[in-house]
Amino acid sequence: MSAIVQVKNLTKTYASGFTAFDGVNLDIEEGEIIALLGPNGAGKTTLISTICGITQPSSGQVTVGGFDVVKNYRDARRLIGLVPQELSLEAFETVRNSVLFSRGLFGKSRNVEFVEETLRKLGLGDKMDSRINQLSGGMKRRVLIAKALAHEPRVLFLDEPTAGVDVELRKDMWNVVEDLRKDGVTIILTTHYIEEAEAIADRIGVINKGRILLVQDKHELIAQMGRKELRIDLADPIAAVPDALANYCLKLVEGGQSVTYSYDTRAERTGITALLRDMQSAGLQMRDLQTRQSSLEEIFVDIVKETT
């Protein structure tokens, strides 16, 4: 099956001459959640804006649901919902009217029940008649999501949906995303919180300086890129690592009560067997062992560092 969003060789150069991204290729499958990670100014928002029609591509092509976003913009845009990064809302309108407006704009018949149901799902059931300028920042963010969902899109772009949102609300938001996924909505989100990507995404794309550095299945990414750490608790603390074990680059932790050994899961030999054997011959008694996977955050920092 072909991807629901296809980005081919997309380039965006602003009128100022600044190239925000160059030759981007990206295929997004129907029903998946993909997280785009990247530092400030990486080009995440510009990429989303170009797909959604807010900025014009300089060259290349984007299709959504098989429709070219420039030539068949009507068909393409009907499939897309967008939650922008900025809290851009008309201040004096009520929440309900604002969401009804969005639905109408996308050519859908007026459906107050659907709009109210969407608002309730987002926890805005008691705010429908409030003016937008009477809402907190987190609530405004939810209104933006409701507006994006008002026309029942198949593809949802969430540009930093949880920026400036407290922990509880963030978990709520993840649940909303999970529900949408169950309905088969494809979700593209950008975030600075790696734990967020780790928690909800199927695939992760890393973007820096206008280039997509990699796009990979979350688990594969962690497994492949990940370094693992083996921690060995000792029966008796040691003051220094014995010379015989110098090659393993062990680190003493907890005042010599434990040592840690890090290794690459992709390597042919992890060196664990040899280490355990050598420790035994060095006369160290082991009490316990545990291994730990490095987090996405550490991986992300590594990738971005490599390219700067």
Binding site: G53, R74, D75, R77, S88
Partner: peptide, 18 residues
């Protein structure tokens, strides 16, 4: 001008309208 100023024009620009 007002939607341009508040940024809410993003919605018009990304909607299926000519």
């Amino acid at each position: 001008y007002f939607p341009k100023f508040t940024g809410s024009i993003y919605e018009i620009l990304s909607a299926p309208v000519n």
